[in-house]
Each structure stands twice: as C-alpha cells, then as structure tokens.
Amino acid sequence: MLRHGVVLVKCARPALAGPSKGKRTGSMFRELALCLILLCGWPARAVAEEVVVAVNPRTPAGEATTRNTLSAIFAMRLRAWEDGTPIRVYVLPDNHAVHIAFCKQILGVFPHQYRAAWDRLVYSGTGQAPLEVESEEEMRARLAGTRSQRPVVVGSEQEMRARVAVTAGAIGYLTRKMIDESVTVLPVE
C-alpha cells in the first residue's frame, strides 16, 4: 500500500471514525465505492469526526483562541506565545484526511495553500516549516511530550524540565476521539 495505497488509505479514512481499527479491513468493494464517491466530489465525507485544536497541557495558550491567531500560528508567522514561550507547530502530512479537514474546516484554507506558504518560508530563508508527524497517534504523543505512545521514563529532574520546556509550546490538532488526559483541547472562538 504505497503508491496506490495513497488513494485507498485516504478513502478508507471514514473507518477511523468507527469504534475500532478492525473495521478498516472492510470489503475492498466498499473502499472502491468510497473512492468513486470521493472522486465525484464529496470530499467533505473524508473525515466524519470533528477535528479539534490540541495543545500540550502546559502550553500558555489561554482558555481559548481565535481563527486569526490559529491562521498566524499555522502559517508559521507567529513564533511565540504571549508570555514568550516558543510555539512548536505539529501537522499531519498534506494528504492526510485529518489535515485536509483541519485546513478547510478550522482555518478555511486549502492544504496546498499552506504548503505553498511554508515552502516560501523554508526556501527563501524567511521562516521554518511546521514539524510533520505521520499519524494521529504520533501527533498526540508529540503534543503530550512523549516520543512514543508509551510513557517515557525520564532520567533526572533536569531532563524532565528540559522535556517540559520543549513541549510547553506545542500545538497541533486531532479528531475528538483521540483526545485523552495527556493533551488539552483549545477551543476556537
């Protein structure tokens, strides 16, 4: 499932909204049918579940944020929270259904426009790209401040402080079912 898988995996995304991943092994016919539906222009169905903005519990983002603030953050042109903590932005790959849904639903921008903006920053020396993670599980782990899905044992108090310092500014997005106590939902006004 590499090259050809891009389409199938994407089309199979609605299954993610189901109770278990086991459902992704559903019939090939259904996936193909979904593909056809998507190609015919119902991409809004790609992610059935609500996408929310998620931050590290220590991220000093306040009680809520605005769409303008999020636009500035995800366009990588706002690099610090109000108290000066550096903002660390995590995103899923451009062709990930949750990323597409986040761009369109919450930011009101198409993913290729964000990619163009990031490319302009990166290849002209005027800014940096957001950090890309492969899956929602990895997104949650990065936001929470752990590199894997298992809890990380830190060796010393210094390491703990360093780790918290790095993740304290973290921001990303997840489907609501992925939210647990390790990350905080940041409401958008």
Partner: peptide
Amino acid sequence: IGANASWVPRPDVQLAIQ
C-alpha cells in the same frame, strides 16, 4: 541541487543559509 539550514535561537531571530 540545493540545501538549506535555518536556526531560530529565539522566537524573534532566525539565521538561514542556502
């Protein structure tokens, strides 16, 4: 063929080279 490196030592400063 191009390669660049950028470093943001603090949020208001960036060094970049390509």
